[in-house]
Amino acid sequence: MARMRRGLVHAMAWSLATGAAVTLSWWGVHTVLAGTAYDPPRALPIPAGSTGAPPAGAGDPLASSTRRPSTPPSSPSAEPRASDRPTTPPAPTPSRAPTASKPTTKRSPDGGDVKSYAVDGGRVVFDLGPSSAELVSATPASGWQMQVWKQPTWIRVTFTKDDRELSVFCVWHDTAPRVEIEDR
């Protein structure tokens, strides 16, 4: 009888320790992933009187939240830990000339400017307000990987492919939002 009681006590202790370990692991993963997720793109209203068709001679659309690469990108081997994230974006020191097209601008309903930045790694769209910014969408180009970091005073979208890393920063800590592109 004592042996059975000892066995039950050991089984209960093992169950409690396992439950605590699973809870702690879930909390840690949840904390790390909560800082890397971003809000889904939001739809902008179409101005009254618009037919919905783009004007003749219109270029690429500002953003596409439905277009995906033809080949699915492989997932990165490890997600960045909270301690690995930069606290402030590094000063741009491009080794190659950034290959960004001129941003296109639309006025958002809340008074900000919705600007799209097309770079070799993909397209990033920000809603730039007078004192802050929001990420509207970020879409990697075919074959590129993408990671997003959001902090209270900056957003960083990084596209990677092979040994190339292309980052689009939106910073607004002491000024109006500004976008910087770094190509390494």
Rank of each mutant, 00 (worst) to 15 (best):
S77K: 05
A91Y: 08
R96M: 15
T23M: 08
V32A: 14
T23C: 13
T93L: 14
A78E: 04
A13N: 10
T87N: 08
D60K: 08
S64G: 07
L33Y: 14
F126N: 05
P40L: 15
A82S: 06
V125Y: 02
W149E: 05
P103W: 10
I46G: 00
W172A: 05
I155C: 12
R184F: 07
T160S: 11
R42Q: 13
M146N: 01
R67H: 08
A176F: 02
R42F: 11
M1G: 14
S50D: 14
M146R: 13
A176H: 05
Y117E: 13
T18L: 12
H173R: 13
V32M: 12
V148P: 01
V22Y: 07
M146L: 06
Q145E: 12
T87P: 01
A176D: 10
S75G: 01
M12E: 14
S64H: 01
R67N: 13
V179T: 00
L44C: 07
R123V: 13
G121M: 06
R96E: 14
S75N: 07
V179C: 00
L8Y: 05
V114G: 00
D39N: 02
R68L: 12
A11N: 04
F126Q: 00
P98S: 14
I155E: 02
A2M: 07
S131T: 04
V124S: 13
V171W: 00
G28E: 04
L62V: 02
W26L: 13
A43M: 06
V148R: 04
P140S: 03
T105Q: 13
D162A: 11
W154R: 01
A58L: 09
T99F: 01
L8H: 09
A133F: 07
P61K: 10
P45V: 03
R96L: 03
K150L: 15
V157T: 12
